[in-house]
Amino acid sequence: MYLNPIRTLWGDLRTQFQADFKVNLYVATALYITLLIAINYAVDLEDSYIDGDLTNPWRPLMYAGLYTTSYYGAVWLWTHFNHRPDVWRNPKFWTFSLTGLLIYSYYAGFYGYAAWSERLFDGQLYVFAYKCLSNLHSVVTVALPLYLFYRFVDRQPSGFYGMVPKRKGLAIYGMLLALMVPLITIASFQPDFLESYPTYRGTDADEFFGIPEWIPALVYELCYGWDFIPTELVFRGFLVIGMSRFLGPGAILPMVVCYASIHFGKPLGETISSLFGGYLLGVLALYTRSIWGGLLIHIGIAWGMELAAFLQTAL
């Protein structure tokens, strides 16, 4: 049943290694991301400094500093070990890479949804509106600006950064998601898991609208699922599929380093695991030219954890 997806996955990984693997490059990149991780967790960079004040208008610029440092440092290593200084002289490389990084930096540092939540329903549903809008604001902070860039600057006929559904690879993603089910089930019995999940708690929205509680819960879960789309669109779509025109298969390593940096506010184990998960999803996106499988895994795992927590609390 799983033999063909495993062969396909292994074939894509082997193709990537043959095209991009160099011992010195991978060792240097591993040391670089290790240094970034060590600095972040030693000084609590993201939580204490960048996110110390969510209302700080400079947060997007601070995120831009973090993401550009992680990304361009990894690009420098790739160009150095592959003898490709021409990349830095290409104006389009700068236009494209800065566009993706700055859009995501603004998204990460944006806090306007708090004010939107206060105004919506005169603040009577602040908690519910806040939870939903904190996941939906990427429609205007990520999806719209990226689409405008694609429509008026990029204008590639190959599709909007991997958003075109393709059947290739879906079996692989389904297999990977199925492997996560027992892990999620085991995790759901742990007390610390139930302290964090489900992310939706009572918000009084059902009483305000006079509807069953499962309806606002479902609305929130749909918003929660949406929030995984901008991450896949930027990192696997734009920074891998889009940037591969400049870096070829070398687009994956810088994406992985930058992807790990967006996890700096999370537990160390999650940051480290993002390196392996980011690399695997990057390879699959590059060779399938689609991000739909990554969305399937991310949203499937997220909703799986929510469902497991709901079932545990209902028992």
Results as ranks from 00 to 15, higher is better:
230 P>I: 07
224 Y>A: 11
227 D>L: 07
225 G>E: 05
253 L>S: 09
236 R>F: 05
245 R>W: 03
231 T>H: 01
251 A>W: 01
240 V>L: 09
229 I>M: 10
240 V>A: 09
221 E>H: 07
235 F>W: 08
256 V>F: 09
235 F>Y: 14
224 Y>R: 11
218 L>C: 13
241 I>C: 05
221 E>R: 03
225 G>D: 06
227 D>R: 12
225 G>R: 04
240 V>N: 09
245 R>Y: 05
242 G>N: 12
255 M>K: 10
219 V>S: 10
237 G>N: 03
232 E>K: 02
252 I>E: 08
233 L>H: 09
235 F>S: 00
256 V>G: 06
221 E>P: 01
237 G>D: 02
220 Y>N: 00
242 G>T: 14
226 W>P: 02
239 L>K: 09
245 R>D: 06
249 P>W: 04
234 V>N: 02
254 P>E: 09
221 E>V: 01
225 G>N: 07
240 V>Q: 09
249 P>N: 14
234 V>T: 13
224 Y>C: 02
249 P>Q: 13
220 Y>A: 11
246 F>Q: 15
251 A>M: 10
223 C>H: 05
233 L>D: 02
241 I>L: 10
231 T>G: 08
238 F>T: 00
239 L>W: 07
223 C>L: 03
235 F>L: 10
218 L>Y: 11
224 Y>P: 04
254 P>R: 10
249 P>V: 14
251 A>T: 06
221 E>Y: 08
254 P>D: 05
226 W>T: 01
237 G>S: 04
245 R>H: 11
234 V>L: 14
251 A>C: 14
223 C>A: 15
220 Y>Q: 03
251 A>S: 15
228 F>G: 14
233 L>G: 01
229 I>N: 00
228 F>C: 01
238 F>N: 04
234 V>K: 05
244 S>D: 14
242 G>M: 12
226 W>G: 00
247 L>A: 12
254 P>T: 12
245 R>L: 09
225 G>F: 00
232 E>H: 01
243 M>S: 08
243 M>Q: 15
229 I>D: 00
246 F>H: 15
231 T>W: 00
243 M>I: 13
253 L>W: 12
218 L>A: 15
231 T>I: 01
236 R>D: 04
255 M>I: 11
241 I>S: 05
234 V>S: 06
250 G>E: 11
227 D>I: 12
249 P>E: 13
233 L>R: 02
256 V>E: 09
239 L>H: 12
246 F>G: 08
227 D>T: 14
232 E>M: 11
235 F>V: 07
253 L>H: 05
221 E>A: 00
246 F>K: 15
244 S>Y: 06
248 G>I: 14
251 A>D: 05
225 G>S: 04
249 P>R: 15
233 L>N: 00
252 I>S: 07
256 V>W: 10
240 V>M: 09
229 I>H: 00
230 P>Q: 10
227 D>F: 10
235 F>G: 01
239 L>C: 11
243 M>P: 04
218 L>P: 05
241 I>A: 08
233 L>V: 03
